[in-house]
């Protein structure tokens, strides 16, 4: 009986002494955190998405507090958060453009050809190992939804025809889907951009025609006929410079595109 009592007392005593010691040390040693920093940390969205380029919300708050970066990098918090953070610190706001993910592929079961029937693990990276996927087009969306599984806000949804779609209102612009996609089909675009070239294939026009009914063939109509629209064709794929784009011209170019691949975002 005394053995049990001894054991209990020793461990309880040890725990109590150490706990008390730590409590005293905590009182004496910790310097109080600056109230501004605490306020900044409190107003973060707490998503810890890493979209700002820091390890998490509190790391970003600390960097802003120390003046290493300006407020406004936080994509989920948006403009409102940047303003509030700037108010606490008493500095000017310089807003980073809010970005959302977009899937640069218009292919679905109807418009693209299949080379074979893939029945392996339903994951894009797994499918990509096997002849770079079952699609005829090797740079398009594999439609297996690896991006859906990494999205923390459930912004990527499957349409009825099997193609995937980003819901821009839910997307936080953290970019984790862009990293998981084996073909790099998903890219971040400014949230206010209206038109996109929804194709990712750098193949020659003739090759694209063989495997896809809608893909960009690099015909350069948008680049040459509408120079104001801000299109450039590089390696058989048109890209739009979102800063230069003038809406009217882009709209005209979209109508002139023989493949109708310059699409208005919904």
């Amino acid at each position: 009986m005394t053995a049990i009592l001894n054991a209990f007392l020793i461990i309880a005593g040890l725990g109590a002494v150490l706990g008390l010691g730590l409590a005293i040390a905590d009182r004496k040693l910790t310097s109080p955190k600056d109230s501004k920093l605490e306020e900044l940390e409190g107003m973060m969205p707490g998503a810890n998405c890493g979209g700002c380029g820091f390890a998490g919300c509190s790391a970003y708050a600390d960097a802003v507090y120390q003046g290493k970066v300006l407020p406004g990098l936080c994509s989920p918090g948006g403009e409102e958060l940047a303003k509030r953070m700037a108010q606490v610190l008493g500095v000017e706001v310089k807003m980073a453009q809010k970005k959302v993910a977009y899937i640069f592929c218009s292919g679905d079961c109807e418009s693209t050809t299949k080379e074979f029937d893939y029945k392996g693990i339903p994951d894009c990276n797994a499918a990509s190992i096997l002849f770079r996927g079952d699609n005829g087009c090797k740079s398009g969306c594999l439609h297996l939804g690896s991006c859906m599984s990494v999205c923390t806000t459930g912004a990527i949804k499957r349409k009825e025809n099997g193609a995937l779609e980003v819901d821009a209102s839910l997307c936080q612009g953290c970019g984790s889907c862009t990293k998981v996609c084996p073909n790099g089909v998903i890219k971040l675009i400014p949230a206010d951009s209206q038109y996109v070239v929804a194709c990712n294939s750098h193949e020659k026009g003739s090759e694209v025609r063989k495997v896809c009914k809608v893909g960009c063939i690099g015909c350069r109509i948008c680049e040459t006929k509408f120079p104001e629209a801000g299109f450039t064709v590089d390696q058989n794929l048109a890209t739009l410079d979102y800063d230069k784009a003038s809406l009217e011209e882009v709209c005209k170019a979209a109508q002139a595109c023989p493949r109708h691949i310059i699409r208005k975002r919904v």
Binding site: A7, I10, I11, A25, D26, T30, S31
Partner: peptide, 23 residues
């Protein structure tokens, strides 16, 4: 009781070291 006693001591020690270093 050595295992549980050591865990207690090490956990407290590391915390203490962290506080002292911080200060």
């Amino acid at each position: 009781l050595k295992t549980i006693a050591f865990i207690l001591v090490i956990a407290a020690l590391v915390q203490l070291v962290e506080m002292v270093l911080k200060k």
